[in-house]
Design a protein around this nucleic acid. Structure first.
Length: 301
DNA sequence: AGCCAGGCAAGTG
DNA sequence: CACTTGCATGGC
């Protein structure tokens, strides 16, 4: 077991680990105090979170545990987690510079003040894709539960200190699952979408490389080659895995925010409304603004 | 009991 | 192109 700590007080804009991991942008981390993961709560501030990383070390999966305490991001892992955490948590993002690009308005100011230090994540593509295919018409807590179930049933196991951990399943493994297998895990009508998209990735018929590097709106179209991916899911994967920080996923919460705060942005179609809200949120880092607003609104009664 | 949740695919006009 | 319908499931 390796360990280390990263002084996050020195980072531009700091870090709020709990908000970052529990804001519904990643479903690959679990809190090992066993508490609910549905919304942020006061006890999560120094909780341990863990994930299983597949493909970081040749020939095996790694376990990484982190917690934030006294200005440090402390980690224990079966590998050197410093570079991994810097990538996954986008510790290099200059938050003050990003906030400077986001306009001031009452909602954005409140949301950013409430969760300053929340960072967009950089998740691996396939797990992120599957997570957001599963997200359709589903609450955050249950999406998280589905990914846990997928890992438990189909993921590679890692044993450490007498505990068994499960990594996220590979495309091959989920492509080989049947729709009935996946329905048994509670995926509902999303089951065939996950299976068919896994086949596309496993066969190479559609991959992240078809999308990476395209201009944002072309990338959003290209994402829809995957089954179960429309405009909204595409935007989530683009932001949380492929680094398109201008993406503004229009989910039900954001639609409500548009109606309540930005009615002039409602243009009748996803593409036009998204474009208008992207401009309203300052363009280049509009996704950051969107993610703060989503987390903020979702945690208001 | 009904309504809702980080929507999408398929069918129709 | 826009619009409508069907789709799983658990929590409130």
């Amino acid at each position: 077991m390796d360990s280390g700590s990263i002084p996050v007080g020195d980072l531009a804009g700091g870090l709020d680990l709990q908000a970052t991991l529990e804001s519904g942008q990643t479903f690959l981390w679990r809190r090992d105090d066993g508490r609910a993961y549905e919304t942020a709560d006061a006890t999560g501030g120094s909780a341990w979170y863990y994930t299983v990383v597949v493909g970081h070390t040749e020939g095996r999966a790694d376990v990484v545990r982190v917690r934030q305490r006294e200005g440090m991001l402390e980690w224990e892992a079966t590998t050197d987690a410093d570079p991994l955490l810097a990538e996954r948590l986008r510790l290099g993002d200059d938050l003050p510079a990003i906030f400077a690009e986001i306009p001031d308005d009452p909602l954005l100011d409140d949301a950013i003040d409430a969760y300053r230090g929340l960072r967009i994540v950089d998740d691996p593509f396939f797990p992120c894709l599957v997570s957001f295919i599963c997200s359709a018409q589903m609450r955050v807590g249950r999406i998280h539960g589905m990914q846990t179930a997928l890992a438990r049933e189909f993921g590679e196991t890692v044993r450490l200190d007498g505990e068994t951990y499960h990594g996220f399943p590979t495309p091959d493994r989920l492509a080989a699952a049947t729709e009935a297998d996946l329905r048994e895990l509670g995926l509902g009508y999303r089951a065939p979408y996950v299976q068919r998209s896994a086949e596309l990735v496993a066969s190479g018929e559609a991959t992240a490389e078809d999308v990476r590097g395209l201009d944002y709106e072309d990338a959003r179209e290209a994402m829809q080659a995957f089954v179960g991916v429309g405009d909204k899911v595409a935007d989530c994967v683009l932001m949380f895995s492929l680094g398109y920080l201008e993406a503004v996923p229009l989910d039900t919460w954001i639609q409500t925010a548009i109606a309540d705060y930005y009615p002039h942005c409602e243009k009748g179609s996803y593409a036009e409304t998204s474009r208008a809200l992207r401009a309203e949120f300052g363009g280049e880092f509009a996704g950051y603004a969107q993610t703060y607003v989503f987390h903020y609104l979702r945690n208001q009664e």
